[in-house]
């Protein structure tokens, strides 16, 4: 497969994964969050996660930062289509970043 087709196919596949992520991803906490909940006493090691369990992140003296699009979302008004757009924007940004850096740094093909 030539490079142009590879990039196009890869972007399409990534956007399909983004759609799957928005509609099909598990709402359960990931491994680090589950461990934090176990440490907090809000979850047992092998049990299900209670629906109202939340990882405590309000620790005094720690750095706080408000990201541009928290939780891969454009906000409640945009709903799930906004999440697909946010993820798709991230996909295109990754491709542009790699091409930009490679244009500056990568060597020409032999």
């Amino acid at each position: 497969m030539d490079s142009r087709r590879l990039v196009a196919a890869g972007i399409v596949l990534a956007i399909l994964i983004a759609i799957g992520a928005v509609y099909l991803a598990s709402p359960a906490p990931d491994g680090l969050e589950s461990t934090a909940l176990v440490v907090q006493g809000d979850k047992t090691l092998t049990g299900d996660t209670p629906p109202d369990a939340e990882v405590r992140e309000d620790v005094a003296g720690r750095f706080t930062f408000e990201s541009l699009l928290p939780d891969y979302s454009l906000g409640d008004a945009w709903g799930k289509p906004g999440e697909i757009l946010a993820l798709s924007g991230g996909i295109l940004l990754m491709v542009l970043l790699i091409y930009g850096i490679s244009r500056l740094m990568a060597r020409p093909a032999k």
């Binding site: 990039v7 990534a14 991803a25 598990s26 359960a28 990931d30 589950s34 790699i98």
Partner: peptide
């Protein structure tokens, strides 16, 4: 470069796709 770009985009998006793995965790 194209492969690196696609790998980066793929890893970025698939990290957002949490799959259930049992024990109340994804």
């Amino acid at each position: 470069v194209p492969l690196v770009a696609i790998l980066a985009a793929g890893i970025f998006v698939i990290q957002a796709f949490n799959l259930p793995v049992a024990l109340g965790t994804s």
